[in-house]
Amino acid sequence: MEDKDKPKDYIKNIRFEETTPSQADLDRLRKRIWNDIGEPEKRAIWWKQSNFLVAAAISMLIISIGIGWWSSRSEQYQTAYGEIRKLTLEDGSQVTLNANSVMRIGDRLAENAVREVWLEGEAYFDIAKRKGAKFIVHTSKADVEVLGTEFNVTTRRQNTKVMLNEGKVKLHAPHVPAIMMKPGDLATVGDQKQPIKVRVVRPELYDSWKESMYILDDKPVGELAEMLQDNYGIRVSFADTSFLNKRLKGKLSLSSPSDFVTNLATILDLEVEKKEDTYLFK
């Protein structure tokens, strides 16, 4: 019978009247979503306007010229080898300055629309939110721009590393577009060939130094050796350099650097010998 399939056809022939979003609607929504990716779920949209960014960049330039002039009177904090110092800035932000680091503080953090600090070394930032006022950490390689968030900045040797713990930051490096970081991201700003590398890490691997702990997981011993030299002025060398690539697990207390070295030797099952300022593992 020719009508056999009619009902089904007919069902397909009726449809519900629907309002279809325009491509512009979908693109706008997409942009909004992608812009906020990684953001804790809330409605705030921070840097929505690109011309706002341009304006901000220009005003920053002016401000930094101004600050250069004022810098003679700005505050500066410095830590010695092995010294970790907790600071509360004028605007309520908490900074933990790691050993062997220098941080210069910009002017009037509590009032200025742009709060700025200059860092050499390593610090962990817990930025107090102030409506409309951003916070910029300048390093030799990159600028980290934030509103309110927690993150770690290391600027040692040739690299600047930023590890974002919470919130959202924007990373500006020369010659490349700024990137938006999300929690757990570790961004390394290096040489011209590979200006910014981002990978996802466990935040505690990069901020446990605040509690004077060092988490060994997934980091080569070589990195640990650099850390000892950067933060404690302790040189370590290995008779068998293949140890530098070895990866360990677990954590060690940093509260006494010499215990740290002894414990490390135990883990590696090596003897350690001190010669002047160098510990030789063999």
């Binding site: 629907e18 309002t19 279809t20 979003p21 609607d25 979908l26 997409r30």
Partner: peptide, 11 residues
């Protein structure tokens, strides 16, 4: 799915 979800949501 965005467009489709949009239509459903709008209904």
């Amino acid at each position: 799915f965005a467009a489709d979800l949009y239509r459903y949501g709008y209904n």
